[in-house]
Computed example of a mutant assay.
Amino acid sequence: MRQNLNNTAKIDAALAATNGRAQSFTVTSADTLRVFATAAEEQLAGILPKSAWPGARVTCRPQGPSSSYSYSAQTTKCVLERGAKDWFLISCERDQVFPKAPRMCRVTLTAAQTLAVPLVAEKRLAAAFTLTPVAQDASAHERLELHAAAQKLAGVA
């Protein structure tokens, strides 16, 4: 399935077929998917230029029931993919959501997008700051020390 989110009738029909009789905690309309797509765009805008968004995917589902539920509920898990101009519904399936589970809107980048993110960040930094590059004549040991220091600064060590 690959349906443009602007094709509301087909999207709504696919969601209705997936959900069956379930209404609560499910995605029931293309409008809801557009809300998820907008949230994904906000995330993407922070790390990549808009021209680099095609191919990014977002896996989404509504939040779970309140704490008064003591069991899981049926939900709809959907995957959207960014095209050149629009978002497309790639798949939708039934899933289970547990009480107090937060809404899910998880963006997955392509391999090329993943590699582009630090390059975009460096470009943005260079526009706002004067960057100090690693010295060309730095030894392997010095490079490892710098890398370890950078990991510590970034909170990933």
Rank of each mutant, 00 (worst) to 15 (best):
W53L: 02
A127F: 04
R82S: 00
T110C: 08
A128I: 12
V107C: 05
T32K: 15
Q136G: 15
V35E: 10
T26H: 11
A16K: 09
K100V: 13
E122D: 14
D86E: 10
T110I: 04
T28H: 10
A45W: 01
A116Q: 12
A127Q: 14
I11P: 01
P118N: 03
N6P: 08
Q74F: 09
R94L: 08
A14R: 12
L119Y: 14
A14G: 07
L48F: 05
T38Y: 08
A138P: 09
K85N: 12
A73G: 08
A73S: 15
L115W: 14
C105K: 03
S51D: 07
E93G: 13
A17M: 07
R34K: 12
A22L: 05
A56F: 04
T130F: 10
S68C: 08
T26L: 10
A157H: 10
A157I: 02
A149K: 13
C78W: 00
R82W: 03
D137G: 08
P65M: 04
C78A: 13
A17F: 05
S70H: 09
A126C: 09
T28N: 15
A135K: 14
S29W: 05
A17E: 07
R21D: 15
A154L: 15
P65S: 08
S68H: 12
I11F: 01
A13N: 03
E41T: 02
M104G: 05
N19F: 04
L33T: 00
T130Q: 12
S70D: 13
Y69P: 12
F25I: 01
T130H: 11
C92V: 01
Y69C: 12
P62W: 02
T132D: 13
A22C: 11
R94S: 06
T18Q: 02
A17S: 07
S72N: 10
K100W: 13
K77I: 02
T59L: 06
G155N: 09
A39F: 06
A138Y: 12
A116T: 07
S68G: 09
P133A: 02
A101F: 09
A14F: 05
G64K: 05
L146S: 10
G83F: 00
L15S: 01
G155C: 06
A121L: 15
R2I: 03
K152L: 15
L146G: 10
K152C: 10
